[in-house]
Design a protein around this nucleic acid. Structure first.
Lengths: 257, 257
DNA sequence: ATCTATTTGTACGTATGTATT
DNA sequence: AAATACATACGTACAAATAGA
């Protein structure tokens, strides 16, 4: 049969992992071996206790580890138990956010990537979007057609304009590219960018940004990849200039799902 | 003083999180509020049991969650306990890898990003690297100066040439860019790319790749950012051609730390 | 090198909560 | 409504690890 046991061999330099971690790892590789898919059921607590010869608490801690990683979901009740679960984008984003919590990313850091990745995304999406999605993009742009009148409105519009990019990211056939752009957009949304958005030069840049997005949707609809890329390139340069000098600080908090 | 309690208010649509998750979240935000830094000590099991009024097992499961996320490390013994811990790059990589385990990334997906990010990295590093690092890069290149004679050697060289890029990534002042390139490089290292590397066209491309890296180091040493970018751009195109058509499959396994 | 104190780690029995039938 | 099947939570006892005397 299959051996569902914790690995015991360990190199000397490694810090010995606690048993729950071992159990979690064992279950993980067992899932891979069995080729279990999202939705498939894991053995129940009782059975795991038997197979590992360990106490309920240990097994439970192991399940918590897998759950924290977003790999399993657990339900109570009859027919309940733990189930393999595809790691959600939210979860992945939160976990990656924890890493950058300690890294003090700056706006410049994020834009160094956006500047090159967003145009790439735009180009690859040209001609592939359904009219439905294109309409959604346009109605999103409509949310900030009029200049904001209050600081709060300003902030909302800013978030909405970032949402435009999240919508695009969600359409990417490249999961890595899509995830990353979404991640960056959400990081920017979490920024505190309340200051000086009303200053004359920024107002100009801002309305220009909306203009870029409108032209971009057209290029995407017409399937003009190179045009879309070029528009997005300019858009990013504009956006970066808009956000730079805001002295914005990354929120010092963990991203919640 | 500070309230170290699980949040109880929840919207209706959300699935009610189990208590350990609540406890973990509470501890997380408490850490942020207190401004605890990496290395700072968390209250011991006993104290948490008191403050939360919960059983030992529950508290322990909460700690496992935080541990799984890489946010705390726990030690036994006197002076032991749980400590805030900066999420390591390895951990972040493993957790993100879990997400993409279900996404079936292709080589083309990864190269769509590498093609634009690696040149960006190269340009930003020009003139910033110490002679020590430059030497390390050169000695890394030396590892695949001679064509491989066995399949195994071939594979090792391939990994080593990817390591060149990981070394560069580690030097990036942009944590996001550095992490990402490292992540992609490791994904590629985990690929099964044993087939047809000996075919005549590939041999040519391969030696050309080594040449690019040598010229790149020179450009970096001389501080010629644009040159470095251009070289890397060509290098990526070559590398992509080398890997494409390999019909390589992403390893279907979770990335271990 | 051994003991001792401290703190986490494991075990297990029992009771409670929750959802399905 | 009641029985069932499962996870969830609790409390205590004991084992293991480690720093310091």
């Amino acid at each position: 049969m299959n051996s569902l046991r914790p690995a015991t061999s360990r190199s000397k330099t490694e810090t010995k992992p606690s048993r729950p971690v071992q159990v979690a790892d064992a279950i993980k590789s067992w899932v891979v071996e069995q080729g279990l898919q999202s939705g498939d059921r894991l053995p129940g607590e009782g059975e795991l206790i038997e197979r590992f010869g360990m106490a309920k608490g240990t097994i439970r801690e192991a399940m918590r580890i897998l759950e924290a990683q977003g790999l399993v979901k657990t339900r109570t009740g009859p027919g309940g138990g733990s189930f393999v679960h595809e790691v959600s984008q939210q979860r992945a984003r939160a976990l990656l956010g924890n890493y950058f919590y300690f890294k003090h990313l700056t706006i410049a850091d994020i834009y160094q990537l956006r500047r090159v990745l967003e145009p790439e995304l735009a180009a690859s999406l040209a001609g592939t979007l359904s009219e439905e999605v294109l309409t959604e993009l346009e109605s999103n742009i409509a949310r900030y057609a009029e200049p904001a009148k209050t600081l709060d409105e300003e902030r909302e519009q800013h978030i909405a304009s970032l949402r435009f990019h999240a919508l695009l990211a969600a359409q990417s056939g490249n999961a890595l590219l899509g995830f990353l752009i979404d991640f960056m957009v959400r990081m920017l949304s979490d920024l505190t960018v309340y200051r000086e958005l009303y200053s004359p030069p920024n107002i100009g840049l801002w309305s220009k940004g909306r203009d870029y997005q409108e032209r971009l949707v057209q290029a995407l609809r017409q399937g003009e990849g190179d045009t879309a890329r070029a528009i997005m390139q300019e858009h990013m340069i504009t956006a970066q200039r808009l956000m730079e000098g805001q002295e914005a600080q990354m929120l010092r908090q963990f991203i919640s799902e």
